[in-house]
Amino acid sequence: MADNADHIDGDDNEDVRAQQNLIKIKLKSSEGGIYECGLTAAKMSDLVKNMVESLGTDAVVTTEPIILGNEAVTDAALKKIIEWVEFHWDDPPVDHDFEDEKDRRNEELSHWDKQFIDVDDQALLFDVIAAANYMDIKGLVEVGAKHICSKIRGKSCQEVREMLKITNDFTAEEEDAIHKENAWIYAKD
């Protein structure tokens, strides 16, 4: 049994991926909530993927849930993350070619991703990003990054601080000095 499942693991064939996603594994948040997730979808997390690969699929399917111990992986964040991977698991694999990567980084978020990540509760948004980073889901971290950067775009330092609740730990003199150094960027506008 284990041999079969492991054999399928190594296969990138779309049908196999679809078939594998019918296998459900359990993920447990740091708050204790247990949630089911398709195997292919869950493996978008490199953390989960490595665990599944080292233990064998059968073990993961039949044993206790995978515990995601990082505090950012709250129930709410894990539910959001599973929603995201269940939507994206059949995306074409990421091409690491430089030009493509540059294009991808510059590409706007899809409508679905925009709606997904536009969370009013900023604590939850940050939980999702930190949890995705911990679970090593690069695509989702990128969605979070693009969302935050789109909110920062064109704003002043003070507006950015207020929006993202960032403490200004510069003295007035230090801030002035940086402003002076970068004066040309303001002059450009």
Binding site: K146, I148, C149, R153, S156, C157, K165, D169, F170, H179
Partner: peptide, 30 residues
């Protein structure tokens, strides 16, 4: 709900999607 909670690595990754103009503009946020 504060972005201060993120470590430097994650912060760098998130900010890497900013345009260069925005990077200069935001350098003195923190």
């Amino acid at each position: 709900n504060s972005m201060d909670r993120f470590g430097d690595d994650l912060c760098e990754l998130l900010l890497s999607y900013l345009s260069f103009e925005d990077r200069f503009r935001c350098e003195c946020v923190s």
